[in-house]
């Protein structure tokens, strides 16, 4: 898989430095205390119960109806929208987190989640700004270091990513996302064996985060370990069967093993599960579309369906005209098509 993958959500507890907004303090004390109690409850839900995100959103909106200037409520609402993960709410998630920081710049967790969103939107520079500001307020915070490391990887500094993620792991050896980001950086540095080892540790530690399975499956395929890839990816589908990346990768592994019917079946599943359009603001959605088209092209080529392969490669190039492998493979497909025509001409085949 090309491009980058970030954790769908790092479950970060709200740090104690997340203080109440000044305005809330000025409201009636009893009312403020009641709101604070509700915020505590809903905040815990937002952080630990993604299945309750919609309930949390309803409650947070109700709190904001009573106290429109509650920085905490805006922050939790932004995080809850982030949990939902739908493209149509990503702008609102950013907006709520930015409003929270406008009301209370000390809400460092808001910066962390904002950075996550910026990475999803392909805005690594803004993510870096937020994380550097967060680290200035909370030096050495391992989750911030880890995400900053991933940000550095995404802007092309994998070595700095390795350093930052190792710092994060020094502070907290069980921090799965730091290990995950470290593995991605190692893979970028072509330290494949070490990268796979780190990813295996992440998957074995058991976080229900599909991205780790996607990355490990990808690494196995690129190392030619197709059975291991299929086993890992199948486990990923048990966590989230709706993620098309898993199906695309399984198709790739099956195709590499010569099991073309199984590959076809996986691509059919991937097509039915992708919901995002090219207009999606999520980089990841556009990457899925690209990878799906590429795998469809390669499978069609392998099946000898040259017209379909050519069309699919062309669709890949519509998304990225400079993608050299697709150009090369399309040229090869066209060459084969010409040879077929030659063979069909009278006297062309002896």
């Amino acid at each position: 898989m090309r491009g980058s993958i970030v954790f769908a959500l790092a479950m970060l507890p709200v740090a104690p430095w997340a203080s109440r907004s000044l305005d809330a303090q000025q409201t009636d004390q009893a009312k403020a205390a009641a709101i604070q109690e509700r915020l505590k409850r809903v905040g815990a839900d937002v952080m630990s119960r993604p299945d309750r995100a919609n309930d949390a959103i309803r409650e947070l909106k109700a709190i904001l109806a009573e106290d429109p200037r509650s920085a905490e409520a805006h922050m939790y609402l932004g995080i809850a929208y982030r949990v939902l993960g739908s493209p149509e709410m990503i702008g609102e998630a950013v907006a709520e987190l930015r409003q929270a920081l406008e009301l209370e710049p000390r809400h460092v967790p808001a910066r962390f989640y904002l950075a996550h969103l910026y990475l999803n939107l392909g805005r690594a520079t803004r993510a870096r700004e937020e994380l550097e500001a967060a680290l200035a307020q909370a030096p050495g915070q391992p989750q911030f270091l880890a995400l900053l490391g991933e940000t550095e990887r995404q802007v092309g500094n994998p070595r700095r990513s390795v350093d930052l993620n190792r710092q994060a792991l020094q502070a907290n050896d069980s921090l799965a996302e730091a290990r995950y980001y470290l593995a991605l950086a190692l893979l970028d540095l072509k330290q494949t064996d070490e990268g796979i080892r780190e990813l295996e540790r992440v998957v074995q530690s058991g976080p229900a985060v599909v991205d780790a399975y996607v990355s490990l499956g990808t690494a196995y395929i690129e190392a030619g370990r197709f059975d291991a890839a299929l086993e890992t990816l199948a486990r990923g589908t048990q966590i989230d069967a709706a993620r098309p990346e898993l199906r695309i990768l399984m198709a790739r592994a099956y195709r590499s093993k010569g099991l073309l019917d199984q590959a076809q079946a996986q691509l059919k599943l991937a097509s039915s599960k992708r919901g995002a359009s090219l207009a999606s603001p999520f980089q990841q959605d556009q990457q899925v579309e690209f990878d799906l088209r590429l795998e469809q092209a390669r499978l069609a080529a392998k099946q000898g369906r040259l017209d379909a392969a050519a069309e699919s490669f062309q669709r890949v190039l519509d998304m990225d005209p400079e993608y050299a492998p697709a150009k090369r493979e399309l040229a090869e497909v066209r060459k084969q098509m010409q040879e077929r025509v030659q063979k069909k001409k009278p006297g062309g085949q002896r």
Partner: peptide
Amino acid sequence: LRKEGYRMYCLPTL
């Protein structure tokens, strides 16, 4: 899309 004629205006979400 990067295909000729297909570049479009970006969403404000970006």
